[in-house]
């Protein structure tokens, strides 16, 4: 394999034309960046689950059970060796217990607890959602191409319906107080609305 007069090629390559991207590209980038700062990434939005409280108690009990007092005259090296062995045994036991628990039918009955978050902590999240909602409305008012995509349009109309339903429910809640059934419905609507909003943002 031989190449002659490589310089001729290099000279021509240096003269290749440069192109300018479409002027609207920065606007699209800026919109996306605005949404980035308005909406947290979906994974950060996922609820936090607390494992059953007795898991730590079980671990602690197991550790106490497996850690007898070290003999007074044991050498430093001997103590370390014993500790390492017992730690390894504890890990093996815990993994074994976990594996056994997953194999049993009882695994399905594990309870999942969700933290109730103080509403004041949710305010910034609400503001972010409102900003994203405004962004979607703005893009459609401006008749941006993304709003012509059928999937986007369907989701947008679902979003509008849910927003309307939310307003009606909020009014009803104002009139009838904290009716548990209405509150449940409102939570459901909020959740669905957030999901649709996130999908729309991803499509933008």
């Amino acid at each position: 394999m031989k190449e002659l007069n490589h310089d001729t090629l290099q000279k021509a390559l240096r003269q290749l034309p440069a192109y300018e991207p479409p002027a609207l590209l920065w606007d699209a980038l800026e919109t996306q960046l605005d949404l980035d700062s308005a909406m947290p990434v979906p994974s950060e939005n996922l609820p936090l689950h607390t494992p059953p409280a007795d898991i730590w108690a079980n671990i602690e009990a197991r550790l106490e059970q497996e850690a007898p007092a070290a003999p007074a005259l044991q050498s430093r090296r001997g103590g370390l060796w014993w500790r390492r062995l017992s730690a390894a045994a504890a890990v093996v036991l815990l993994l074994g217990a976990g594996w056994w628990a997953m194999r049993t039918e009882g695994f399905e009955s594990v309870e999942v607890h969700q933290e109730i978050v103080d509403n004041r902590l949710l305010e910034p999240l609400q503001e972010q959602e409102d900003a994203a909602f405004e962004m979607v409305q703005h893009l459609c008012r401006e008749q941006q191409p993304v709003c012509q995509v059928p999937e986007f349009r369907n989701l947008k109309s679902e979003l509008d319906e849910l927003t309307e339903a939310r307003s009606s429910l909020r009014e009803a809640l104002g009139a009838y107080g904290n009716d548990p059934e209405l509150v449940g419905q409102l939570v459901e609507i909020e959740r669905e609305r957030s999901r649709i909003l996130q999908t729309l943002v991803t499509m933008i």
């Binding site: 394999m1 031989k2 190449e3 002659l4 007069n5 490589h6 310089d7 001729t8 090629l9 000279k11 021509a12 390559l13 003269q15 290749l16 034309p17």
Partner: peptide
Amino acid sequence: DQVDWGAHPIDAEYLE
């Protein structure tokens, strides 16, 4: 095999 770009300049437009 061998490639020879020659001594004459290559037109950048053609090249692209």
